[in-house]
Amino acid sequence: MSLSQSQTVGLILPDHLQQVEKNLKQMTKQRTLYSLFSIALVAFVVVTGVKVADSYNAGSFQRGLENFFDYPIDLIVEAWEAGWVWPTLLVHHLPDLFNTINIAVFSTVVGAIFGFLFSVLSSKNLMKNEAVRQFFRRTMDICRSFPELVIAMVFLYIMGKSLVPALIAITIHTSGALGKLFSEAIENIDKKPLEGLEAAGAGWWQQIRFGVITQALPLMVSYSLLRLEINVRASTILGFVGAGGIGEALSTNIQWRYGDEVTAIMFLLVITIVSLDYLSGYGRAKLIGLGEK
């Protein structure tokens, strides 16, 4: 009797822990409900979505699945038939590829410069003026929200076909996207060096130069590398609407149904994207390691 009594006494938890346990039980119940609900929701969205999609698609889903491999096989067969000419096609399209990559690099560099300016003007710890900060925040939001394609098409209409609309479009988008990331990086820096610099009588620019850039640069460069990768893809896509580079070559060759050329360009693209992916990943890993040091 006394033993069991002491056991119950031992089991009685302090008030706040009882509350926690009650909360936990409630949460478990709630969570099961939520999980079931979200699974049902996902299933519903998938099923109805596919139904809606199927009813409005030009071709049917079934036939699409059957034809799925037709095009890749056609392409590969044509590439095979081209034989030894195929490798020369790779070389033939290198200048286009160079243009595409150059668009991406140029607009990433310019976009990063603008993004840096935006981010300095929109970070809480560097810009004390609320109105200026909000203005640059909204500017960045707008720059970021428009897909590159939309901006590029407008400039293509005004300027005619050339590489420059793609440059402008990607630069605008990049400066918005990088500006936001940069400003987050700047807002997360250690405050102490800034305070030290201020105490030593450093001006605004000197504070940025010695307090902010020294801390945030590795992260900024790593974000820019990530962006470079995205921009190569973007500049390829812009080629499709007439902004030049390898995208334009791909789109014309698809229209002319030159399977060998199409495979050559796709091959170049995939190689470029994969190698850039690895390079930027490697660079980022190094940079972030450097930042921690």
Partner: peptide, 28 residues
């Protein structure tokens, strides 16, 4: 994963465009 990721969304959409025709499935 590398293969799926490495072939750009653009290239995938071109392949699917042939299979499913212009429409939502291509995008999906």
């Amino acid at each position: 994963f590398d293969f799926l990721r490495g072939i750009d969304m653009l290239v995938w959409s071109l392949i699917f465009l042939r299979a499913f025709g212009p429409g939502v499935f291509t995008g999906i």
